[in-house]
Design a protein around this nucleic acid. Structure first.
Lengths: 303, 303
DNA sequence: GATTGATATCAAAAAAACAGATATTGTGTT
DNA sequence: AACACAATATCTGTTTTTTTGATATCAATC
């Protein structure tokens, strides 16, 4: 009548390890328990979640759509269990939070929803806008905190910050591309392959920066501000790109697979963090939010 | 090792009906199944979720904190199951959404999180601000849609809308108040009892409006813009108020109980809806979001 | 075609959930 | 104080589900 939390947990473990047997070891149960849990889950949902391969399993397109939901189930359950053991959080007040667009879309909103449930006494006021605008607003006390990319803070002297996640940048390739599955390619491959450049937020500026540092000039054949467009084009074999794991999904909207490969020679990860006005103590409510975000993200795998 | 979805479902049913036996009937299981599920859940969490009373059960403070989380678990599970059965939603584009503060805090954010998971190809841009500002922005094409109180739209001629929820307004009383448990009191009781007035957003204006319609002049002893402050003051016996179920919680932050009573003679419910520029077809992405919101809210109890 | 490294299947055992009957509890009434 | 009433709690046997451990199967590679 219903899927179970256990099924979700086994599914997530299997998806993350890419192997039923390894997931079983991690979960301290037998391999057959995981296999049957996944089989029952698939039967219940009426879809195939994994492709069975000789080396393990790989998410189907449906499976990769289901994965974030399954993770969300586990997160929500954990949070529900947690909330009752905490003594009442009496913090209240208003916290004004700024987020840049990509961060909001791929990262912050689910966290914000959790903050709201956790601190019912705190009123949150959210704003999405460009990084520069947000930095300025924090400095002018128009925002209390900001969740933004912290790698290249402009007003770094006037802002304190902590990092929430460091999301690895990897090379995105269409499935079956000649470079796929090699691992540890040098960044210079983007000079010979057609390159799709994402221009949203400060993605372009960041990329240009580390190209220059490594003296690489990519062969840009298309620029777009839409992550989905990049995904579609890469999947269609129109080019390759380098983007962070935070925005990576293994399938394009059209259902074609996208692979990733590590890049050797140090492409910096994308740093997302929370920042606030330097040398100014935060209001208790804002401090609670910052603490919660740090704490929540500590035991999260960098994905 | 884990709570189960079934336990969450039974708990929610019991909390909503206020009776284990009634919940059991609704769920088509035996009363003992519900009782043991709740007992196991309480044992697992190590807290008491209900007070057992002769007429049924009532949430403890901890239980009422747990309830929204349990509901969230069920919602997330339902959504996870739903997402795999849908064929791929290819909609993409950008949708700019405006929300007023109260709506964002108590209603919209969890929905927005769901929209994001449901339509990964849609980029959402969120803005919170005052109702007037949002209406203007929609008309000037600076926002695509707005989630706001629709009872008193200012620019109603230029905006189309559909209602998402109608949240009943009820009288809030401290536990043990002489008027508690009576049911169907006339609105005129607020003339004799000290009244706490919420001033956030347009709450004040709305209240004044239906006071005038019914020729009632309340005995306002305190005004505040914080819902939590209202809750605390009512719980502490400093006055009573009339607010919608959307912002109602049975316990104050300090852990004191708040009761509600129906009001006879037609206090209008709070209408929350989504609106967009009249006579202008919505972009497909925005249309999808509107459709999703309507559809999601249809089978939700008006709480 | 044998080996390796993975998943799938099967049957028995263990654990969990359920229904139905009964006990208990708390309120209000007489 | 005893009783009736209306609810929840507990107990027991049964059914269902999950797990395990052993074995079968499959695909790639040597």
């Amino acid at each position: 009548m219903d899927i179970t939390i256990k099924q979700a947990r086994y599914f997530v473990a299997a998806a993350q390890t890419g192997q039923v047997s390894r997931a079983a070891v991690d979960l301290n149960v037998s391999q057959s328990a995981v296999t049957t849990a996944i089989r029952d889950l698939e039967a219940h949902l009426g879809v195939r979640l994994f492709e069975r391969r000789s080396k393990g399993i790989a998410l189907t397109e449906t499976g990769s759509r289901f994965l974030p939901h399954a993770e969300e189930i586990l997160a929500v359950v954990q949070e529900a269990v947690h909330v009752v053991s905490e003594q009442q959080t009496n913090v209240h007040g208003k916290v004004r939070i700024g987020m840049s667009y990509t961060v909001a879309g791929y990262f912050a909103i689910p966290l914000i929803a959790r903050v709201r449930r956790r601190y019912p006494g705190i009123e949150l006021e959210l704003t999405e806008s460009a990084r520069d605008t947000i930095e300025a607003a924090v400095i002018q006390n128009e925002l209390d905190i900001a969740i933004i990319l912290t790698s290249n803070l402009k007003a770094a002297d006037f802002l304190d910050h902590t990092t929430l996640v460091a999301s690895q940048r990897r090379l995105w390739l269409p499935s079956g591309h000649k470079l796929a599955g090699r691992g540890d390619l040098p960044l210079s491959v983007i000079e010979t392959e057609p390159y799709i450049l994402l221009t949203v937020d400060e993605a372009k500026k960041t990329q240009v920066r580390y190209w220059e540092e490594q003296n690489v000039s990519p062969n840009v054949t298309f620029e777009t501000s839409s992550v989905e467009a990049v995904r579609t084009m890469v999947a269609a074999g129109m080019g390759i790109t380098v983007l962070s794991d935070m925005v990576y999904r293994p399938w394009s909207l059209e259902g074609q697979r996208i692979e990733t490969t590590d890049i050797s020679g140090g492409v910096p990860p994308m740093m997302v963090g929370v920042c606030w006005k330097a040398n100014t103590p935060l209001e208790p409510a804002a401090q609670s939010v910052v603490d919660f975000l740090e704490q929540t993200l500590v035991d999260r795998r960098t994905k």
